[in-house]
Design a protein around this nucleic acid. Sequence first.
DNA 1: GTATATGCAAAGCATTTGCATTAAA
DNA 2: TTTAATGCAAATGCTTTGCATATAC
Lengths: 138, 138
Amino acid sequence: MSELAERLRQRGWRLTAQRRVVAEVLAGEHVHLTAEAVHVAAQAVLPEISMATVYNTLNELVNMGEVLEISAGNGPKRYDPNTAIAHQHLLCTRCGTLRDVAPKGEAGLTVPPDQQHGFQVVGVDIMFRGLCPACAGT
Amino acid sequence: MSELAERLRQRGWRLTAQRRVVAEVLAGEHVHLTAEAVHVAAQAVLPEISMATVYNTLNELVNMGEVLEISAGNGPKRYDPNTAIAHQHLLCTRCGTLRDVAPKGEAGLTVPPDQQHGFQVVGVDIMFRGLCPACAGT
DNA sequence: GTATATGCAAAGCATTTGCATTAAA
DNA sequence: TTTAATGCAAATGCTTTGCATATAC
């Protein structure tokens, strides 16, 4: 069983077949899936799982802080199970593919105090835009 | 007349009252508006302007590279007319307010070559998340 | 005069919600 | 046994589109 599902069960998360499958589909991915892709992958294991349950479960995982929800330009949101290690993203602006990259040069990236405009800053998201190998053509 | 509208007319953009008003509403904002907010502001000047025309015009400006479209978490997209000067954004995760901040510490923010996964990287978007003064409470 | 933009209303996609049924604890 | 999750289908929010009319050039 996935380590994630087990950990959440111990926190009192009611562990159903659907939730287990969603957690397993997400786990360990470094290319991040849409809700629809999660649904398709989950259905391969549990054919009766519904889209509503996929969305419900993804939102719970996001609210529990176990998964990151990423709105990348157009198209549907993508879900990133890698919350433990700080990282950045690489987005294909054509097909929407989203994957992780390890941080480099992020140190020192802050909002100058005189520009916070009264905001209480909590974090920063960094997204590199470009074309994936498939979309770049050559 | 707005400098933006004038510039685009010279590039062959057919200049209608609606387009002029949308360009004027956007110009010079450093707090970025949603399509709906643009519609409301535009209607104050030109009551008959439709939502469809606002969307059409915003998309044209985005395609012409004159405006940036920003999908920030939930809620509608926001439109940023400041394409000339590189900058970062400050997002209120509660109410969606989005505003500019000047870069600091961005130098050296690149994807390590061994992690490009074949991507052709074009640019990077940096978004600080937090709470705006109104949403932070105090 | 001709090509293009507009407004309207309907369609589209991603996501959420209400409710009766089913299953976990 | 009790409380919460599921599946369905309908509703929602944002955005786009088709088409007849109006307007810039």
